[in-house]
Design a protein around this nucleic acid. Sequence first.
DNA 1: AGTCTAGTGGGATATTGTGGGAAATAAATT
DNA 2: AATTTATTTCCCACAATATCCCACTAGACT
Lengths: 144, 144
Amino acid sequence: MLIGEYTHTLDDKNRMSLPVKFRKEMGKSVVVAPGLDNCLSIFTTKEWDKISSKLSDSSMLATDNRSFSRFMFGQAVIVDVDANGRILIPENLKNRSGLSTKVIVIGVQNRAEIWNEKAWNDYKKVVEKQADALADKLGQIGVL
Amino acid sequence: MLIGEYTHTLDDKNRMSLPVKFRKEMGKSVVVAPGLDNCLSIFTTKEWDKISSKLSDSSMLATDNRSFSRFMFGQAVIVDVDANGRILIPENLKNRSGLSTKVIVIGVQNRAEIWNEKAWNDYKKVVEKQADALADKLGQIGVL
DNA sequence: AGTCTAGTGGGATATTGTGGGAAATAAATT
DNA sequence: AATTTATTTCCCACAATATCCCACTAGACT
């Protein structure tokens, strides 16, 4: 289970170290893909296999499926984790998410996400503001 | 599995190098065929065989099948991958997809696609704009 | 204090992508 | 039919870039 928030560096070679707490679960190669709200998703290869098999399932409408497949597969990349626990972020994905040197890595259950620092802080603020709605949700889940 | 986005050059001899990550799977000859949405599709010979057998499957409506078969078979070409990992793009297919010197090659699971740069960026933008649909899809897949 | 580890930086090496020329093939003109 | 011209294929070379490897620093823990 991937949890927690970490501030890491994307160096000028587009390398980023995975939080050490994620490494065991991540294994020696991961998939970097575009995520929602302008973040990047990092999946384990296992998770990725699930995703791709669901996508190749033709139960989805053909045209939707086509554009979505292109979007995901076309931009995702399988990257090896190097000897220092770092991965390489492709330039196009880096640009898409507006990542600069300082990035935020967060764990979200079965995936990790990479955020532009400001975007993440803004996002958190917005969510925080919706505290009532949040409490409601948590209540529904039975957490509070 | 073919994934990722690469910017390549279509030189004045209509040669284009395949991304090195695709080469192993592509083997030493591939099929270049017209794709949907004005791109070009590149299939492995294996995939091509699957496609052609599906097309000859009579479960498809006869007229649809006939026109689509013409569309595909009529313009598809088997091309060899040269010693440098390059393939030759036939002039007519190049023109059809509005390809110039700078092209985008993307992997889409079982096939690769060649796009005019602008066309691909526009396409991505359209998909990205439909954030709701995107989230929906991801939800269906079980990512969210 | 000393050791260990996580995170980061930088240089050397290997590979990729691309351009261009030579050789081979095809087309054309006389 | 023969020579020239055009076109295609093959091969080599180079530059840019990615990959690998090692080193350093700061902090945690003993």
